[in-house]
Simulated scan of single mutants.
Amino acid sequence: MIWMKIVEIDVRLPCNKRGALLKMLSSKLRGKIKEAHLYPPDSRGFSEVLIEVETDEDPSSIMSELRRILHGVPFKIKVMQA
């Protein structure tokens, strides 16, 4: 039996790249985006994106996929349910 995991991804990036990020994540990750919170930009134009993904993949494979997609943009990942 395969257990589904809920993985929370927290990314801070320029607000004009938020839509492109969600589009890439939904096409690249073989999981289902449960929730996506797009917070308003700060005074420097950076916005925080908080995404919850339901997946059966290993979280380390999700991290390696994110490193390829985000190209040096800092992000945090947290496994909410194992």
Rank of each mutant, 00 (worst) to 15 (best):
M1E: 09
W3Q: 14
M4P: 03
M4C: 04
K5W: 01
K5N: 06
K5A: 07
K5Y: 00
K5T: 06
I6Y: 04
I6R: 09
V7T: 03
V7C: 04
I9Y: 05
D10E: 14
D10R: 15
V11I: 15
V11A: 09
R12K: 13
L13I: 15
L13R: 05
P14E: 13
C15Q: 13
C15A: 15
N16Y: 13
K17E: 15
R18N: 10
R18P: 01
G19M: 11
A20Y: 10
A20H: 11
A20K: 14
A20G: 12
L21Q: 06
L21P: 07
L21H: 08
L21E: 06
L21C: 10
L21S: 08
L22A: 07
K23R: 14
K23Q: 12
L25E: 05
S26R: 15
S26F: 07
S27W: 02
R30M: 07
R30G: 14
R30D: 08
R30H: 12
K32D: 06
K32G: 02
K34F: 01
K34V: 11
K34N: 02
A36W: 03
H37Q: 08
Y39A: 09
P40R: 03
P40L: 05
P41T: 08
P41Q: 13
P41V: 05
P41S: 10
D42C: 04
D42T: 03
S43D: 08
R44G: 07
R44K: 13
G45E: 04
G45Y: 04
G45C: 05
F46Q: 04
F46I: 09
V49P: 03
L50N: 11
I51D: 01
E52Q: 14
V53N: 01
V53A: 00
V53S: 00
T55P: 04
T55D: 00
T55I: 02
T55E: 00
D56K: 13
D58T: 06
D58P: 02
D58M: 09
P59I: 08
S60D: 11
I62W: 01
M63N: 04
M63P: 00
S64Y: 01
E65F: 00
L66P: 01
R67I: 01
R68A: 04
L70I: 00
L70R: 00
H71Y: 08
H71E: 13
H71D: 11
G72A: 05
V73D: 04
V73E: 10
P74Q: 05
P74M: 06
F75K: 08
K76N: 15
I77S: 05
I77T: 10
I77P: 07
K78V: 15
V79G: 07
M80Y: 06
M80D: 05
M80R: 15
Q81A: 11
Q81Y: 12
A82E: 15
A82S: 14
